Amino acid sequence: MLVVDDELDITELITLYLQREGYTVHTADNGEDALRIAETLIPDLIVLDMNLGKMDGIEVCRSLRSGACADVPIVFLSCKSEDRDIIRGLSEGGDDYITKPFSPGQLVARIQAHIRRRRTRERNGEDAAAVLSFPGLEIDFRTLEVRLNGDKVALSAKEFELLSVLARQPNRVFPLEELYRRVWQSDSMGDTRTLMVHVSNLRKKMESDPARPRWVQTVRGFGYRFSPGTPGDD
């Protein structure tokens, strides 16, 4: 586990809570050290402060996503709670976004959910022999790849999981709470904006017209569904 924050008291607090749960924790207080440690150790998860000074969290996240830590879950910490800040963090590769001040217990629970999901996926290979095929779309759980009209779509780990949950039960409407629980492996709903941003990012990568999505559609007042049929208005 890697915790990156330039506020020592926060780093020590998170480290204390994680060590109580039996995790080995490495820390860094700047982006350069964070990248060096991450590329060397390949941690199970990275807690990353957005505001690090010379090299901010967004820059660190971009570098991590282009290297050996491309699939490592990243949980952003930030004192910024505006929609545009959350959207930016998740769009740049974050898997989760938690605002300061935060509950250490809730942070640990979210971290455990990400790690549990990743380890389950690695252990089971997401049904290693399974391939879901729809007209123009293929989801391969052996290689964790998605192909749209024959072209590979570069999805983040959470985007792939989100698509997988929906596509395994086409046309079923998933309430927001259930979809969040399945993808983030948490009984707590957390921030609905996290789920909505990931849906938005998924559409931008997969839909020719994200405003009229073919694949991941909104059922207003209920949640989302995967539709292998025709586009709908969102």
Results as ranks from 00 to 15, higher is better:
224 Y>P: 02
175 P>T: 06
83 D>V: 09
194 T>Q: 00
12 E>N: 12
150 G>E: 07
139 I>G: 05
129 A>N: 11
55 M>H: 09
152 K>E: 13
9 D>R: 11
31 G>Q: 12
209 D>C: 03
126 E>Q: 09
214 R>G: 03
218 T>Y: 02
93 G>F: 05
164 S>G: 09
76 F>W: 08
59 E>G: 12
112 Q>D: 08
52 L>N: 07
81 S>C: 02
95 D>W: 01
191 D>W: 03
106 Q>T: 08
49 D>S: 11
1 M>V: 13
175 P>Q: 06
198 H>V: 09
148 L>Y: 10
156 S>W: 01
216 V>D: 01
186 S>W: 01
137 L>V: 06
229 G>K: 03
97 Y>D: 02
42 I>R: 12
162 L>M: 08
133 S>P: 00
79 C>W: 01
15 T>R: 14
212 R>Q: 10
209 D>Q: 08
14 I>Q: 06
113 A>L: 04
36 R>N: 10
52 L>Y: 10
230 T>E: 12
121 R>D: 15
233 D>K: 02
177 E>T: 11
40 T>W: 06
19 Q>E: 15
190 G>C: 10
213 P>N: 06
219 V>M: 04
92 E>C: 09
169 Q>T: 15
37 I>S: 04
93 G>C: 08
186 S>D: 15
6 D>L: 04
207 E>I: 06
145 E>Q: 14
95 D>A: 05
6 D>F: 06
117 R>M: 13
92 E>F: 08
109 A>L: 11
215 W>Q: 00
233 D>G: 00
100 K>A: 07
117 R>L: 06
164 S>E: 07
193 R>E: 04
93 G>H: 06
42 I>F: 01
38 A>T: 08
175 P>K: 02
122 E>S: 09
162 L>W: 03
135 P>Y: 08
224 Y>F: 15
8 L>C: 00
83 D>T: 08
37 I>F: 04
205 K>T: 02
20 R>Y: 06
133 S>W: 00
78 S>A: 07
48 L>V: 09
53 G>Q: 11
132 L>N: 00
52 L>D: 07
51 N>I: 07
211 A>K: 11
51 N>E: 13
115 I>D: 05
155 L>H: 03
230 T>H: 05
187 D>K: 09
49 D>G: 09
167 A>H: 05
66 S>E: 15
15 T>A: 13
57 G>I: 10
128 A>H: 09
149 N>G: 01
101 P>M: 03
112 Q>L: 07
5 D>N: 13
62 R>L: 12
212 R>F: 05
142 R>T: 14
86 I>P: 00
176 L>D: 07
197 V>R: 02
138 E>L: 12
109 A>N: 12
154 A>M: 05
179 L>H: 04
